[in-house]
């Protein structure tokens, strides 16, 4: 099937920064895709090029087979989007703001009322945009993005800066959409939970390039080891005993944190033998945690940095 969004070898530089250094990607109809990466990875620049707001220096972008040149009006009608930051007209109410944008798409009051319900702003419909909380503003932005029943939805950090509750409200709106509409979504975020929770396909970006991409399964189980043991020692200077080539466990030691990590595939069999190994070396644990691997671990293993650094 022909991808609904096709990005080919796109580059974009600003005065002294190469923000996007040759990115290609495809998004298929109905797919929820996350662009996951730390601040400055080039996510905004990339989505804004897809949105037709910025022009690539090099490379091509096709949306449903059409490029922005000459098809702007048509594509604007297919796309819904929210920018990383938008202010609205200060002294316009939620409802008036939606009605203004609805008029741009030739939509009427009925659609505005639906959207107000959908994004849960019924109580705030007569509040001025300038008086909304962060989460309410993001929901208004999302509501505007959804007005025209877009085939393609592009959301730039829709939950950044929100508290967990507000974030979950936005997630629920999007999950609802995933269930009921055949919308394709590209969402940028630096929260791995957001990518894991919402998206079928994750593209990890770093310094203007794609680091790794795939389904959650592929990213987390790629090397067969999808679980993690993290531990600290009573006597951190004993760590040297646990490292080296003749040790049966590939332990990573982070001296700054005084913490060891071990990737495993099965807790049931591997934890007992790990304990035997510690006993044999006469090393006492201070703390031990077992958890599944996350996208953050994938990012850290490839860059040595964390996503939210």
């Amino acid at each position: 099937m022909e991808p609904i969004i096709k990005v080919k070898e796109v580059h974009k530089s600003f005065k002294n920064v190469q923000a996007v250094k040759g990115i290609s990607l495809n998004v298929h109809a109905g797919q929820f895709t996350a662009l996951l990466g730390p601040n400055g990875a080039g996510k905004t620049t990339l989505v804004e090029m897809i949105e037709g707001i910025q022009k690539p220096d090099q490379g091509e972008i096709f949306i449903m087979g059409k490029s922005w040149k000459g098809h702007a009006d048509e594509l604007h009608r297919l796309i819904g989007l929210s920018l990383q930051e938008t202010h609205f007209i200060d002294k316009l109410t939620v409802r008036e703001t939606l009605r203004l944008f609805a008029a741009f798409y030739d939509l009427g009051r009925k659609r505005v009322a639906e959207i107000i319900d959908l994004v849960g702003l019924a109580e705030k419909r007569d509040a001025y945009a300038v008086n909304l909380s962060g989460g309410q503003r993001q929901r208004l932005a999302l509501g505007i993005a959804l007005l025209n029943n877009p085939k393609i939805l592009l959301l730039d950090e829709p939950t950044t800066g929100l508290d967990p509750n507000a974030r979950r409200e936005i997630w629920n709106i999007l999950l609802q959409l995933k269930e009921h509409a055949r919308t394709s979504l590209i969402l940028t975020t630096h929260y791995m939970e957001e990518a894991e929770h919402l998206c079928d396909y994750v593209i990890i970006m770093h310094q203007g390039r794609i680091l790794k991409e795939g389904t959650l399964e592929q990213l987390l189980n790629g090397d067969g080891a999808e679980k993690i043991i993290e531990f600290t020692l009573e006597k951190p200077n004993q760590a040297a005993d646990l490292l080296g080539s003749r040790v049966p466990f590939p332990i990573q030691w982070e001296p700054d944190l005084g913490r060891g990590t071990l990737l495993v595939s099965h807790f049931e069999t591997q934890i007992p033998s790990f304990f035997d190994f510690l006993k044999q070396k006469n090393v006492r644990l201070k703390n031990l945690e077992c958890r599944r691997k996350t996208l953050d671990d994938v990012f850290t293993s490839m860059t040595g940095r964390r996503l939210d650094e």
Binding site: I53, H76, R77, F104
Partner: peptide, 13 residues
């Protein structure tokens, strides 16, 4: 500067 124009021109306005 508040990116309001940017948002508006991303519609068929």
């Amino acid at each position: 500067s508040k990116k309001l124009l940017r948002r508006m021109v991303a519609t068929p306005m």
